[in-house]
Amino acid sequence: MTEPAKRAVMATRKDFRTLVHVPSGETLDENGRGLWPADSFTFRLLQEGALKDAPDEAPAALLKGK
């Protein structure tokens, strides 16, 4: 089974840093960044403005900590 595609995202406001991806349980780090599944939940939060795409360098930096 292949792992689902991931998308580097970041919170648009400090209070959104506590968001939890449903159903995976992924969270954002203390800076509000994360590598989340590219699914309908993530896309909805992007569309609503709670998340935005992280800068291009974010995926490599996020993977270093994993």
Rank of each mutant, 00 (worst) to 15 (best):
Phe43Tyr: 13
Glu57Leu: 12
Asp15Leu: 03
Arg17Trp: 12
Gln47Asn: 04
Leu51Thr: 00
Gly49Pro: 00
Asn31Leu: 07
Ser24Pro: 10
Arg17Asn: 15
Val9Trp: 13
Ala54Ile: 02
Ser40Gly: 01
Arg44Trp: 02
Asp29Lys: 05
His21Leu: 14
Pro55Thr: 03
Asp15Trp: 08
Ala50Phe: 04
Phe16Lys: 04
Thr42Ala: 07
Ala60Gln: 10
Met10Asp: 01
Gly32Cys: 07
Ala8Arg: 15
Arg13Val: 00
Gly65Leu: 12
Gly34Val: 05
Lys52Ala: 02
Val20Glu: 15
Phe41Ile: 05
Asp39Ile: 03
Gly32Tyr: 15
Lys52Met: 01
Glu26Trp: 12
Leu35Met: 10
Arg7Leu: 09
Asp56His: 09
Pro23Lys: 11
Val9Phe: 13
Ala38Trp: 13
Val9Ile: 15
Asp56Ile: 11
Ala61His: 09
Val20His: 08
Pro37Asn: 11
Leu19Pro: 00
Arg44Ile: 01
Thr42Ser: 08
Asp29Ile: 06
Thr27Asp: 09
Lys66Ser: 14
Ala61Arg: 12
Ala5His: 11
Phe16Leu: 04
Gly32Ala: 04
Asn31Arg: 10
Pro37Met: 02
Arg7Gln: 12
Arg7Trp: 12
Asp39Ser: 07
Phe43Val: 00
Arg44His: 06
Leu63Trp: 09
Pro59Met: 09
Leu35Pro: 04
Ser40Thr: 12
Pro4Met: 10
Val9Glu: 07
Gly32Leu: 06
Leu45Gln: 09
Asp15Phe: 08
Gln47Asp: 11
Arg13Leu: 02
Glu48Asp: 04
Ser24Ile: 13
Asp39Gln: 04
Leu45Gly: 00
Pro4Ala: 13
Lys52Cys: 01
Glu26Arg: 14
Leu35Ile: 08
Pro55Leu: 07
Leu35Gln: 00
Leu45His: 10
Asp15Ala: 05
Gly25Ser: 07
His21Ser: 10
Lys52Thr: 01
Gly32Lys: 05
Leu63Glu: 14
Thr18Val: 11
Val22Thr: 15
Lys14Ala: 13
Pro4Glu: 10
Pro23Leu: 10
Pro59Phe: 15
Gly25Asp: 10
Phe16Gly: 00
Glu26Val: 12
Lys64Trp: 06
Arg44Glu: 12
Ala11Ser: 10
Pro55Ala: 09
Leu46Asn: 04
Gly32Glu: 06
His21Val: 03
Ser40Asp: 12
Pro55Phe: 15
Thr27Val: 11
Thr18Gly: 08
Asn31Lys: 05
Ala50Ser: 08
Lys66Asp: 05
Asp15His: 13
Ala61Cys: 02
Pro23His: 11
